[in-house]
Design a binder for these strands. Structure first.
Lengths: 325, 325
DNA sequence: CTGTTAGCGCGTTCAA
DNA sequence: TTGAACGCGCTAACAG
């Protein structure tokens, strides 16, 4: 591994000059700079980032903390963010919180310890507020997305959850479903709270009383979605707006097991528009987010030091599971 | 940020002793160690990993380089590897090559530059051999998985590709399909080469001539799978073993567009057993790998400094798409 | 058992 | 425009 000292020695100058030349410092003579660059290339020099980071007290690492990488949504988000950040010269560390507060804290501490330049995060379900994030990261830039704590300052990128859920519920209403429940998420996450709000708003706009008993919360997985759907069926629901596609899948299976025909006797709309929503039978109507765009937006928010909230539209993909005649 | 010097000052000892105490060096008096630990906790000390890494010339970072995070297989692999590595005190950096050699090289260089302790990699399709990996990583431990270069020394974790493809093809034969083609992958990847070998072996064991014209390579995506399947249909195939589930999905759509009934007129088996294989209609028969186990195995291989090749079994999930009567 | 000394490689003063 | 000197925070070798 060649160092700036090696280059300096080979050129009969000092490491300081080499450092400056390589940093593009304008106070170094054109000629020396070229000589240094040439020599560096020749010797296969690459800056020791660890040393550089130590000296500067910061790094070009950006941490992305998500509940899990394997969710379509997060994976695509990461794809979008990585593109933008990589071309801006940042290295991305991806951390999974596995929906656990402990893991989230551990990941943040590791990032802080690596002197990350900032963090892009969608918090775990166990996280009740953003205090731990702020405490650990200090005044480093924090970009929140999807699941955000409104009181935590900094940039935010969110889907139009309320509007989307409104669309989805209104769609079910227009299709003629009468008793529409919702398989909801965790009320500790803004995103889910807003989806519930959109659901409620649609009902009320249609002159239907919002009935809390038809809200089945804490269900974002297949299993919990299925269980909640069983209750909803017992409660006489003929349609369900689900806050996630996995929960929606559980709901479909619950309906089938109860002998209900989809979409005639049970209409279902999910959220996330996972890849498989389109290929299953009956295909699953779902509220699509734009995770890739969100990733890009979050990266730009970080790079530009923006602090506002950016709202990315969501759109309904109406398919068979809600296509009542 | 408190440093070991702060602690030393507060305790009237030297930084070296603090460093040793914190490192659990047995040559430090029990009493001092306890005092140091207490003070450190009191002052909220956390070791500056960057400085530590610089000094030691290595870090506790392990890089995982995969084509893309969003593939079920890789996401699950990462999950398995991360579990094991995290509890061994390593931090994981996940890098995506996006199937591009350039990105792969960039990622490896970044890892090397961060003085990673090692790398766990499944190479991109563009990579023709492992020379760049070895050159960049020097003598750092390299664990290859799934797509491996046999000539590159170091540990390897692979699925039983040949055996699996054999099972899959034999299954199609037993179901009574007559003209079985294969939507194959890239011959630059061992994994795909072996699947092709297994396919061939099954045919020959059944007394059927292996016909190169029924091998449609370079098709692992939906689009390429579909296109290849169109050719296969034109060539009179009545079944296809596909090296990937996305390609298999493309093949199913090609068959439907050609008016062929699945599984009666066209049998299809995919590979990877993606989540959605089970829920689509007709459900997709698929060769399951055990990505989570593979991740754990790869992590252990790294931790134990093992160098052999570990083979993880694959198993056929026979479903509707190949269920001819 | 602990202190002293000496860097890891780089970037940033301050001088010249 | 360049050099000299220093230190980021930590660890390791060598003494004692």
């Amino acid at each position: 591994m060649t160092t700036i000292t090696d280059i300096a020695l080979a050129l009969g100058i000092t490491p300081s000059t080499v450092s400056r030349a390589l940093a593009g410092n304008p106070r170094v003579k054109e000629k020396t700079r070229l000589a240094v660059e040439k020599k560096a290339a020749e010797m296969g020099y690459e800056r020791n980032i660890v040393a550089s980071n130590l000296r500067k007290g910061r790094s070009n690492i950006v941490g992305i903390v998500v509940p899990r990488v394997r969710r379509e949504f997060f994976a695509n988000f990461i794809g979008g963010a990585e593109d933008v950040l990589a071309s801006a010269g940042y290295n991305v560390i991806i951390c999974q919180s596995q929906e656990s507060l402990d893991s989230e804290i551990k990941a943040l501490k590791a990032l802080k310890n690596y002197r990350a330049a900032g963090v892009i995060i969608s918090h775990s379900i166990e996280s009740k507020d953003g205090n731990h994030i702020r405490e650990i990261m200090g005044d480093l830039p924090i970009v929140q997305f999807d699941r955000v704590f409104p009181d935590l300052p900094g940039a935010k990128v969110v889907g139009a959850n309320c509007d989307g859920a409104y669309q989805a519920t209104m769609h079910l209403l227009k299709k003629g479903y009468k008793r529409i429940g919702t398989i909801a998420g965790y009320m500790s996450c803004m995103a889910f709270v807003e989806r519930l709000a959109g659901y409620r708003m649609a009902l009320e706009d249609a002159g239907i009383n919002y009935d809390e008993r038809l809200v089945y919360p804490d269900s974002i997985l297949y299993e919990t979605g299925k269980e909640s759907a069983r209750k909803a069926i017992a409660d006489g629901c003929d349609a369900l707006y689900c806050c996630g596609d996995y929960a929606a899948l559980g709901a479909m299976d619950a309906a089938r097991e109860a002998g209900l025909h989809i979409p005639e006797e049970m209409g279902i709309v999910g959220t996330a528009n996972e890849f498989w929503a389109d290929i299953m039978t009956p295909s699953l109507s779902s509220l699509g987010q734009h995770p890739f765009d969100m990733g890009q937006a979050a990266a730009h928010a970080f790079l530009d030091g923006r602090t506002g909230t950016e709202i990315i539209p969501m759109e309904l993909h109406a398919r068979q599971s809600s296509n009542k005649h």
